[in-house]
Every structure is written in structure tokens, then in C-alpha cells.
């Protein structure tokens, strides 16, 4: 671990969770997790807190969904506006804000794709050079498909055989694309595991070492590529499904 402070030591959650270390109400120092120990008022969650921290999880991609849900339910019971109805307006407003953030955090982490996209955003600092435009070959393919789709849509009924041929071709294309989607997803989950392995190794490998940085950036870069290609693919597959249905 470096001593210059650039690398974040894993802090205790309670230190991160509070918007400030002083209670908004009685100004005493916060030592409790979500409530001031002096005046028992609920404290606002820090706007800078990331969703993993919010839900008590390490910043990894394969997560225990059961544990995630249990933590979400527990925190819902802590923050939900239903339980602040008889409290002051300030406390109600904090409860509302905390609940909204908690709900966003849970929704984001529950879904693997959103989870990965969120992680990429968090790690953006260490992966600035990641390209976001689709690769030229995929782009070409999609353009061709869109032309076929257009032809199918504007095809007249006068030539039913041609329409049927076009339809068959589009169906085959769609099936091939769906196959590719599945391959992409498989690769994405491999990368999840690689990312997680890299980070559980963190204690042994120096995270600031060039090797670690190179590996981590490579994983992030490939994930971003897959995620962006996946979106293009999903849109065209949806189009194909809707048109040929």
C-alpha cells in the first residue's frame, strides 16, 4: 500500500456514508451508521457515495443477489418515508432523498448490464482512453441490415415470393445476431470474473504497479466495447423482431 494517499485505503463504511461528519441537527460528531448518536436524527447519505458502498458491497461485478436484496430491504426499513411521517420536515426530506438514492443504487446493481456500465463510469478516471464508437465492421453490417429492413417494409404485396424470401433472410439474420448476443454476454461474464479476480488479488499485487493498471484497463476497455456493441445489436434485433413479427 502506498503512503502518498493517492490510493484509497478501504475505509470503514460508516466514515463514507455520512454527508459530513457533523450532525445536521445537533452539530455533534457522527459516530453511528445512519443516525446521530446524540439526537437520534437520520443523516443524509453522501451524494458522493457510490452505489456499491451504499449497499455494503465491494466494487466487484459478480455479486450475491440474495445479499443485495436483503441489504436493500434492511435499508428500506431504515429510510423509507413511511417511517418518517411523524418526524420533522427536515427528517422527512432526508428520508425521501436517502430512499430515492437507495432505490437507484439497488436498481443499478441488480441488473448485470447496468452494474457493469455503472462500474465503467466509476472507473472512468483510470480508463479515459476507452473508445466508444462502434467498430467499423459492425457498423457496416447494421447499415446493410437496415437497408434490408427498409426494403422489406416498403415491399409491395405484388411479389409475395420476394417478400417471403426477404422475410426469411431477415429471420436468419436475426437468429445469427441473437447468437452473437449470447456470445457477447458469455464473454462479458468472463470479464466480470477476471475483473473480480484482479481486485481480490489487490491485497497481494501492488495496485499502483504498471502490470495491474494494464490488466485492469484492458478488462474495462473490452467491457466497454462489448456493452456498446451490445446496445447497437439489441436495437437492431428489436427492430427486426418488431418488423417481421
Amino acid at each position: 500500500m502506498t503512503m502518498d494517499g493517492t490510493q484509497k485505503t478501504p475505509m470503514k463504511r460508516s466514515e463514507l456514508q455520512m454527508a459530513r461528519s457533523m450532525c445536521w441537527h445537533c452539530q455533534s460528531e457522527i459516530t453511528g451508521e445512519y443516525f446521530c448518536e446524540q439526537c437520534v436524527k437520520v443523516q443524509p447519505l453522501s451524494k458522493e457515495m457510490d452505489y456499491f458502498t451504499c449497499l455494503g458491497l465491494p466494487r466487484l461485478l459478480n455479486i450475491d443477489l440474495g445479499a443485495l436484496e436483503a441489504k436493500f430491504y434492511e435499508l428500506s426499513r431504515t429510510f423509507h418515508p413511511d417511517f418518517y411521517q411523524r418526524k420533522t420536515e427536515s427528517e422527512q426530506s432526508i428520508s425521501l432523498g436517502n430512499s430515492a438514492m437507495l432505490n437507484t443504487a439497488y436498481r443499478t446493481l441488480k441488473d448485470p448490464i447496468q452494474r457493469a456500465e455503472y462500474l465503467l463510469r466509476l472507473e472512468a478516471g483510470s480508463a479515459k482512453d476507452i473508445r466508444t464508437s462502434p467498430p467499423a465492421d459492425l457498423f457496416e453490417e447494421i447499415l446493410t441490415l437496415q437497408e434490408d429492413l427498409e426494403a422489406y417494409r416498403s415491399a409491395s404485396d405484388q411479389n409475395p415470393a420476394a417478400v417471403a424470401r426477404l422475410r426469411d433472410k431477415l429471420t436468419t439474420d436475426r437468429e445469427l445476431l441473437e447468437q452473437r448476443q449470447r456470445e457477447m454476454d458469455r464473454r462479458l461474464f468472463e470479464l466480470f470474473t477476471r475483473w473480480d479476480a484482479l481486485h481480490s488479488r489487490q491485497s497481494r499485487t501492488d495496485p499502483a504497479s504498471p502490470d495491474f493498471q494494464k490488466d485492469a484497463t484492458a478488462v474495462l476497455k473490452e467491457m466497454r466495447e462489448i456493452l456498446s456493441n451490445r446496445t447497437y445489436l439489441r436495437n437492431i434485433v428489436n427492430d427486426l423482431t418488431a418488423t417481421t413479427a
Binding site: P81, A100, N103, R107
Partner: peptide, 13 residues
């Protein structure tokens, strides 16, 4: 431009 999708748990922001 959608901000909050349907079936999002409320409170939502």
C-alpha cells in the same frame, strides 16, 4: 428523453 422509467421503485429521482 426518458428520465425515470416505468416500474421504477418510488421514491425515485
Amino acid at each position: 428523453s426518458p428520465l425515470i422509467r416505468r416500474n421504477t421503485t418510488i421514491p425515485a429521482s
